[in-house]
Amino acid sequence: MAEHVEIFGNSLVQHDPAARRATLALLDPEEAPGVIRHLELLASSRGYTNVSARVPAAHVRHFVGAGYRLEAAIPHFYGEGETACFLVRHFGEAQDTERMSLLLSRILAATEMHSLAGPVSLPEGGALRLVEPSEIGDVVSLYRRVGVAKPAAVDDPIFLHNFLGRGDLFLGLWIEGILVAACAAIFDPTTGTAELAHFVVLPEHRGKGLALLLLQRIGELSAACGARLLWSTVRAYAPGINITFAKGGYHFGGTLTNNSYIYGATESVNVWHKCLADDPALAWSSLF
């Protein structure tokens, strides 16, 4: 079942009946009490087990008072430097404690051992470019071969056509004419941010730094499109992608516990972020 999008006043709520979870993606500050009541009604009426919210720091108190827990934050997410706070409330039988805390700690410790990486070279026979509408079939084949971690419809041609049509970016890496890796940037013009998502590399091409190459290039392209801050949520139990973001100069923002439905099971995700004003290589990219 596809994800639903609801407009509540001037606020935006996304929810997924299959995963039994809802997310407040955009909050109108004037609507905080009403939105909180709406989210609780939505969860109770549909049997949802997890409701998360991304809100400006000034309004966290409303959610904490309603039983939400602060789990992550991204400084300077909103205008005038205001922090975005990620909160969660678990309902019913949902677990609100980390089930794999030792693994999570070891992965985060591993990320701290890696310093900022230099530019990654394009592999021999490689071509790194934005996906064109005529190449959507290649993207669909790639995701269907590897599998889709989250129910985001990136293996659906219609979803991808709409994705490219609204101005978001899909970056692909072809080697000898075969698409072997991809990622995306989803822009939010209201905050000037871009969410980096849908990273995928064919198994036989992993361990070669291709994810880092994608991360570096999608950052440059996002900066050229006007994004001032990049962020992402990645699987907390996957060492490779977390280390990739650390090597890319991103900062760890927190862990969202049992927050995502990945490969058919509930998992935690880590939040990573980078303010482009702090990175001259991106802020003054030669792409301008």
Rank of each mutant, 00 (worst) to 15 (best):
A224W: 12
L215F: 07
T97C: 13
Q216V: 04
G207M: 04
R206Y: 09
L196H: 05
A181L: 02
P123G: 01
D168K: 04
L130Y: 06
G165I: 07
L128T: 02
G147C: 09
L130D: 03
V201S: 08
L212D: 06
V120P: 03
L214H: 03
D155C: 03
L130N: 03
L215V: 10
F170N: 13
E124L: 08
S134Q: 14
E135N: 04
D188E: 15
A211S: 15
F86E: 04
S134P: 03
L173C: 01
V131K: 02
F187N: 08
A153L: 13
K150N: 09
L160E: 00
F199L: 11
G172S: 05
N162C: 10
S141F: 06
S222Q: 10
L128F: 00
L116M: 09
V140A: 10
G167P: 04
R129S: 00
S105L: 09
V154S: 04
G126N: 06
K150I: 07
V154K: 07
W174G: 00
L214D: 01
Q95G: 11
L213T: 00
G219H: 06
L212I: 09
V200I: 14
W174N: 02
P119D: 13
L210H: 02
L142I: 00
G125M: 02
A117C: 12
R144M: 06
V88R: 15
R144H: 13
R166C: 12
L130C: 13
G219N: 06
A185W: 06
G167F: 04
V140P: 01
I158H: 07
I136G: 00
V200G: 03
L213S: 00
M113P: 05
D156F: 06
S134M: 10
N162M: 12
R144G: 03
R145A: 15
L160M: 14
P157K: 02
I178F: 07
H198P: 03
P151A: 11
D138F: 09
R166N: 10
R99L: 15
E176V: 00
L215I: 09
D188R: 10
E132F: 01
P157W: 13
G219Q: 07
A94H: 09
I136D: 01
V88G: 08
P151K: 07
L102K: 11
P123I: 00
E93T: 14
L102R: 14
K150W: 10
L215S: 15
L130F: 09
A152S: 13
L164M: 12
L212H: 08
L122P: 01
H114A: 14
A152L: 10
V131D: 01
R89F: 06
L102Y: 08
A184R: 01
G177P: 00
V146C: 12
V140Q: 02
Q216P: 04
L130A: 14
A185F: 05
L87Y: 05
F86Y: 15
I107H: 01
G92S: 02
R99V: 10
T193A: 14
F199G: 12
I175Q: 02
G177Y: 02
L116V: 13
F91M: 08
R217C: 11
G192P: 03
A127Y: 01
E132T: 09
L142M: 05
L202H: 02
I218S: 00
A149D: 13
P157F: 01
V120H: 03
H90F: 15
S115F: 08
R99T: 15
